[in-house]
Simulated assay, not measured.
Amino acid sequence: MSVGVVVALAVGGTVLLGAGLTWMVLHFNRQFHAEEAGVLGRLREASPRQGWMFAERDDSVAELYTWQQQECWQRNPFRSLLRPPRASRAKNVITGFRRGRPFVAAQLDVHYDGEFQRVQWIAVTTPAARPTLSVTRSGPIASMVNNALWGEVRVGYPEFDARFDVMSPDPRFAMAALSPALAEFLLRDPRILRGFTLLADRIDVFDATTDHREPGQLVAALDLRCEILDRIPAAAWA
């Protein structure tokens, strides 16, 4: 095979590869824009019916998130210079009420520990601001290790204590909030992937929500947060 033929084949292959890559980029770009248009269309349709307000950007929500993180920050004894997460921008902000409770949902640009990440924040307002409470799913071995390292709260339900790590600067509040009904709910409900956090006067849940702009997903996420709050005794907020 002559050198000219080899060169021609190489050039032709490069051209075909470039054309294929261009087609793939254009295809995925069109698909992305079509999906975005569909989600936003469904959101625009659902918002008046649900009483929601939507803003493409509202950085006051980023400020609210940052303030909440700063107010509830607990220093890591092993990393004393570590600072709390800081949000610089809030996009696709949805606000409204669900089951009579105010909520905010947004995509945040968050800076933490020298890294940048996009965080989906869906927070429902609680009856009152209370001490921080973090409840995360864990295995029995990991739970014992975490208890030895951090002195986590034990609420007195053996199955729950073995499967969840509970952290709070106020153990009395943690035990008051984690009623038998809530502990059983957390153990059995498959929607709660990893647990929840109470920071200041808002609750967020580690769930399976992938896009808070999708009305069905947002309603389900808000209902889950409300169901957790419904199971916290009123006396815990006093």
Rank of each mutant, 00 (worst) to 15 (best):
S143G: 15
G151R: 07
P131K: 01
T126E: 08
I141T: 15
S143P: 00
A123I: 08
P140V: 05
T125D: 07
A148H: 13
T136L: 12
P131E: 06
S138Y: 00
R154T: 09
A123M: 01
P140K: 04
N147Q: 14
L149E: 13
L149Y: 14
P127M: 09
A148V: 12
T126D: 09
R137W: 04
L133Y: 06
A142V: 12
W150R: 11
S134W: 06
N147I: 08
V135H: 00
S138P: 06
W150D: 07
P140R: 02
A148Y: 14
T136M: 12
P140F: 05
G139A: 06
V145E: 11
I122C: 05
I141K: 13
A129V: 03
A123K: 01
N147G: 09
W150T: 11
L149K: 13
S143L: 04
A123S: 04
T132I: 05
L149V: 14
P140G: 02
N147L: 12
S134N: 05
P140I: 08
I122V: 15
A148F: 15
S138T: 15
T132M: 09
R130T: 08
A129G: 05
R137M: 07
T125M: 03
V153C: 00
E152N: 14
L133C: 06
I122K: 04
